[in-house]
């Protein structure tokens, strides 16, 4: 029998081109044929159990392939097999897997979350996604904000307070930050003097006499102290920034090269004032989400 196999001469297709050019006929091996039949059988089985053929406006749905899932609102739905339902089912499974963690975090205090390595890791990674979806458009992906428009969340200065409670309140209710422009109310010289005084609060070397005049306006006629306090340390109740630290949130004083330039940018703020608005997220996010987000933002640079 093996001599049969080895003595087989190669068959040609019978055509001859250019006198001697012939084409071999190399027959397919049998196993290949059976593999082909197997794929055909597989296809028929697939047609029966999965959506396959269009019929008019509809299509064959397949049998014995129901998927039952609950959507985010808890409504149960049963459909034939399709990738969207598979996805919904996966989302349901994910929600159920996360539930024990979220339940735990809902009951825990912020201090407890911060001390527990599993809870803090879960809150951090979940809130990172929430932050990217809800906060990053203004505050940027890393929370660094945009100078003059959206506050920096990674430094340790907080207009409205950096404790867990303050941050949660901010996220829930939002804030309207407002400082009036003083152009017209104060003369150009007065504004110049106030700017010099404000710079002196942060330790810049300025003309002492001018700064003294500015201090008088700051603590008196100008009314700056009403929000920023007489010491210039600000009030979180008003969202008024601390003017004595090294952080500038509206204009980049640090980047300005000399005193004249620094004064110019500070004056522009006193001239025009500031008006900013952050919407509240109460109702848009669940309590647990807000809690995790608060933990995340506090982790970025919050204080006590």
């Amino acid at each position: 029998m093996s001599s049969e196999k080895t003595n087989q001469t190669v068959q040609t297709t019978g055509h001859t081109w250019d006198g001697d050019l012939q084409e071999f006929n190399n027959p397919l091996p049998n196993w290949w044929l059976w593999t082909f039949y197997a794929t055909v059988i597989f296809a028929v089985i697939y047609w029966i159990f999965f959506p396959a053929f269009p019929i008019g406006n509809s299509y064959t749905k397949g049998v014995m392939n129901d998927i039952t899932y609950k959507n985010a609102d808890g409504v149960e739905n049963t459909t034939h097999w399709n990738t969207r339902s598979l996805f919904m089912k996966e989302m349901q499974d994910a929600r159920e897997m996360q539930k024990p963690y979220i339940d735990k975090i809902s009951k825990a205090s912020y201090a407890q979350i911060a001390k527990d390595k599993d809870q803090s890791a879960f809150a951090y990674s979940t809130a990172k996604v929430l932050f990217a979806d809800n906060c990053a458009p203004c505050h940027q992906t890393g929370g660094a904000g945009v100078m003059g428009l959206y506050p920096n969340l990674v430094d340790d200065a907080w207009l409205w307070g950096g404790s867990y409670q303050n941050i949660e309140t901010t996220i829930r209710a939002g804030h309207v930050g407002f400082m009036p422009g003083f152009k017209g109310n104060l003369s150009a010289v007065q504004i110049d003097n106030v700017a010099e005084y404000v710079l002196s609060l942060s330790g810049e070397k300025v003309n002492v006499a001018n700064a003294a005049k500015g201090q008088a306006i700051f603590e008196g006629a100008g009314g700056c102290f009403a929000c920023h306090t007489k010491a210039g340390t600000g009030q979180i109740a008003m969202g008024a920034p601390n003017l004595t630290d090294k952080i500038w949130t509206i204009v980049d004083v640090q980047a300005a090269p000399g005193l004249a330039e620094k004064k110019a940018v500070v004056k522009s703020v006193i001239d025009k004032g500031v008006s900013r608005d952050m919407p509240g997220w109460q109702g848009r996010l669940s309590d647990a989400d807000i809690k995790m987000l608060t933990y995340y933002v506090h982790q970025l640079g919050g204080g006590t």
């Binding site: 940027q140 992906t141 890393g142 929370g143 660094a144 920096n152 990674v154 430094d155 340790d156 200065a157 601390n242 630290d245 090294k246 952080i247 640090q254 640079g301």
Partner: peptide
């Protein structure tokens, strides 16, 4: 993001 940040005490 960001690589570094200035704190209130400089």
């Amino acid at each position: 993001q960001p690589l570094s940040v200035t704190l209130s005490d400089g």
